[in-house]
Design a protein around this nucleic acid. Sequence first.
DNA 1: CTGAAAGCGCTTACAG
DNA 2: CTGAAAGCGCTTACAG
Lengths: 345, 345
Amino acid sequence: MAIRPTIRDVAKAAGVSITTVSHSLNGKGRVDPATRAQVMQVVRQLGYRANRNARGLRSGRSDTLGLLLPVRADVQADEALSLDFYMQLATSAAAAAFSREQALMLLPPTIVQTGLRGFGIDGGIVVDPAPRDPRVSLLTEHGLPVVTIERDLGRPDDRWYVASETDANTRQVLDHLTAQGAERIALLVPETDWGWATETLGAVDSWISEHSAPRLIVPVAMQPGEESAFQATRRLLDGRQPPDAIFVVAARFVRGALRAAAACSRQIPGDLLIAAGVDCVQAREGDPPVTALDLHPERQAEAAVEMLVGRLDGPDGGEVEAPVYVRATLRLRASTGAGTPRASA
Amino acid sequence: MAIRPTIRDVAKAAGVSITTVSHSLNGKGRVDPATRAQVMQVVRQLGYRANRNARGLRSGRSDTLGLLLPVRADVQADEALSLDFYMQLATSAAAAAFSREQALMLLPPTIVQTGLRGFGIDGGIVVDPAPRDPRVSLLTEHGLPVVTIERDLGRPDDRWYVASETDANTRQVLDHLTAQGAERIALLVPETDWGWATETLGAVDSWISEHSAPRLIVPVAMQPGEESAFQATRRLLDGRQPPDAIFVVAARFVRGALRAAAACSRQIPGDLLIAAGVDCVQAREGDPPVTALDLHPERQAEAAVEMLVGRLDGPDGGEVEAPVYVRATLRLRASTGAGTPRASA
DNA sequence: CTGAAAGCGCTTACAG
DNA sequence: CTGAAAGCGCTTACAG
């Protein structure tokens, strides 16, 4: 492990001043193209990388982005969406950031209490905000730009977000269920105020009135475990006019719904169709596998990083596209009679 | 958002030099306790936090830890362990780091190709290393200390790791299955060279010879999906002397094993017991829920952060305990006839 | 087009 | 016990 070359080493080797090296590297000022080429050659040769601390100290930028997931320290109690969804989001965000020479810092949820401390980040990505999410406030109060993944409905004027096309996505699910023969679709929606859940509810309501369909909407507590969804589904199926399809919005409702269907002797998809609002382990590996919306966390992460970096670079983010909507893909599976044939079937 | 106070502001307000402020803050040099108290008072008042870039530039430390998960960019293809396990690990690591005034940087797996660039980290945590894992090499070549979670079996002399007590954990599973009546326990082990998988295999082998038990060990390909585990289990159950219990090591084998059991008309736990080597969504929400080893990712993360920070602080980590072993907890569930009664049962 | 110099906010010998 | 000063490696006016 050789000691890392500094800008001074590059300057010396290239026979220029450190100013010229800096300018060549950053495209500031005017540099003779030939000189620049020569400098870059040396840079490559020496494997030079600017010291991030030095750069940050001088320029005030750290080239580091913060990621704030809605995952609590006590993870078990809080799997609103499935953790695998967030893991995919985080991994993709890290990759996207790195391809733009940015680092990605994972900020623990406790940061809202402890404060941002001296953590040098240039901006943050807040995932699944509640209305007027305190994580957003925290960053904003420090003058840091924020991009949210899904909207913060408490900040209706904010345009810096990446969101699912919830309306279109939801309609796609409902239309699919209808095409598969469903006439009474029930919705199991989590009792949270997250934008995404609220928007889904709104989309379902619109669809219902447009289609003069029965309104079977059941708010389900986001308790740990699957019991609440199980009970809710069971109540539906034992009711007088039971649904013939269920759209479960949260990952953790999938299993409860499947279990309740079995308990009530419903064949899936014969007697009952089931679809999920987020693709997740529970849906992919359900019994039967459950049709679900792949929200494309990898694209959401990529778009959020791009938006944030664009905002950071441009003066007030003039040319950055915002908001950005990501269309989901409906993964068709056996639970709606539309999956690929099963090897074991 | 007021402009951030600098050490100079603190010094002025406290009526001392910046040297004294720095010393008070870092416990270096000797400072009159009264002076120090006075300084700290001002620090609190002003909400002063040292600028990380400045500190890092001067001291060469960034107070930032890198986390390298074994998750590829194309996540779907690579769920060796379940992603929710890694998400929990990452979240806990972030929290543990922050409580020690460290930041946690999520390093994308591609970093092995792109190189560490100028990313200022003081050390790294590598999760589930393969023998002579290139992620470990990358960091080591840069002179950075590494702590692995689970061992790198290609570096037998390395003591800087946090590992599961795989031998004890495995025996606990096998003993439990035996206590529940199993006489022919099969092992579905992933075809990887990860230390953890290798150690599990070794533990099972020891147990088998100690108990003169039949050796039913099936290496299963780590392909995406559950098909390989399904086929392997089916072959076992259709065989001449089928097992009466199956220990599936990887999260992704859980569902395949359950499905195969159903396909072969085995009641669980009546005809067949199933236990998993890692607690995960698939086990918790299996049908029936599957007894599994909770490896305590939160403790592993905490221990790894502590070890790494200790190594960074102490001269060559003199007083840091290493290695550290984390004992798993066997979560008893219905799949081994030992779970809590099910509400739906 | 190029470079000498100031300075970002700290830490750390060093002198008192 | 305390402080003046050097300097970490950059970027950025500024002068030429």
